[in-house]
């Protein structure tokens, strides 16, 4: 069981998303950074798609009422357990009554907390992801608040490993180099309305930089950059959209649809961020810059496959190392 002893800005339970309901207008949601979701879960021996806590800075502080094996991944929020600093991307054993808190935003926008064995919550429509609008899924369909208590699926005893110390950081780490793509080079593939952009605007999208505005949340990232124009007025009926879709707004600016995007939209789809690049993108903060580069759909598929293979190997490696310590699921 963990207890929220201080409320964070927006901390929610998320898993790999809720699929199969978009025809009802129910968006998939899920962790913004699917690499961090997978890495944090793998480090503690969970299924890579298990539910974790996604945090924004300032993040919650948690009291562990029982011993636990945890891992943090994604953004680095200067985590401390009691008074000891804890790195991200490492498996950490915590003793009973440990307090995990986050002291400063070192890097990234979203940090993920995975707990060995997972959280004991009720799923909604086959997913543990919190759907804030629907008020369903995750923990009571809302962000975590002070005094919330989240039960674990299993209670483990790690005393023999902790040997009366407060924490024990296990001696391996997830090497995430090469897993994330470069935010300065966000790969996109052309959208159906790419040809409708003027030639100048096509050039601007690829050659000019963009920055994130303050209007960036789990639904989408509004960008600031050169105003883009279309050859003719682009009017279409609303249609399905996708995570990563880059829409051209009537004011000539761009919005990238993220995890909590609406299922349908009517703005021009000038390009799509590749699935492999969404994690790097989701770790950007307002005012940070990004650049786009155009790739072929084949290249996008290759990038994604390499990333998935990398995550799969990591998952297996972590499982074996945990077995060395007699920690298994």
């Amino acid at each position: 069981m963990i207890q929220v002893v201080k409320q964070g800005l927006l901390d929610t339970v998320q898993d790999a998303g809720r699929y199969g309901y978009q025809h009802l207008g129910i968006n998939p949601g899920g962790a913004m950074d699917r690499i961090a979701l997978s890495v944090a879960n793998s480090l503690v021996g969970n299924d890579p798609a298990d539910a974790v806590i996604e945090m924004h800075f300032p993040a919650s502080a948690f009291l562990f009422e029982t011993e636990a094996l945890i891992a943090l991944s994604g953004g680095d929020f200067g985590a401390m357990v009691n008074d000891l600093p804890v790195s991200i991307n490492k498996p950490v054993l915590l003793s009973q009554n440990s307090v995990l808190r986050f002291t400063k935003p070192v890097s990234g926008a979203r940090c993920y907390l995975a707990i060995h064995g997972g959280l004991a919550l009720e799923s909604w429509l086959n997913s543990y992801s919190t759907h804030l609008k629907a008020g369903a899924g995750g923990f009571l369909g809302r962000q975590l608040q002070k005094n919330d208590r989240l039960p674990f699926r299993e209670v483990n005893n790690y005393s023999r490993l902790l040997q009366s110390s407060d924490i024990r950081i296990l001696p391996w780490r997830a090497d995430i180099r090469g897993l994330y793509t470069d935010a300065n080079n966000i790969h996109v593939i052309p959208g159906s309305e790419w040809p409708v952009l003027t030639e100048d605007s096509q050039t601007s999208l690829i050659e000019k930089g963009f920055s994130l505005t303050e209007q960036c949340d789990r639904m989408g990232f509004r960008l600031k950059g050169p105003a883009l124009h279309t050859r003719n007025k682009d009017e279409r009926l609303s249609a399905g959209v996708s995570k990563g879709t880059i829409q051209l707004l009537p004011n000539g600016q761009l919005i990238i649809l993220m995890a909590d995007h609406q299922t349908t939209g009517g703005y021009g789809r000038v390009a799509h961020v590749t699935t492999a690049d969404i994690p790097a993108l989701s770790q950007l903060l307002p005012n940070q810059e990004l650049h786009f580069s155009m790739v072929t759909p084949e290249m996008a598929a290759t990038l994604f496959e390499k990333q998935e293979l990398h995550l799969h190997i990591l998952q297996n490696a972590c499982k074996l190392r945990l077995q060395d310590y007699c920690i298994t699921n």
């Binding site: 199969g20 998939p28 249609a239 399905g240 299922t263």
Partner: peptide, 17 residues
């Protein structure tokens, strides 16, 4: 994973792997 019918379109969301 998902099929999204709209006015004059159908979106098919798939899992590449």
């Amino acid at each position: 994973r998902d099929l999204i019918p709209a006015y004059a379109s159908l979106t098919i969301v798939y899992q590449p792997s």
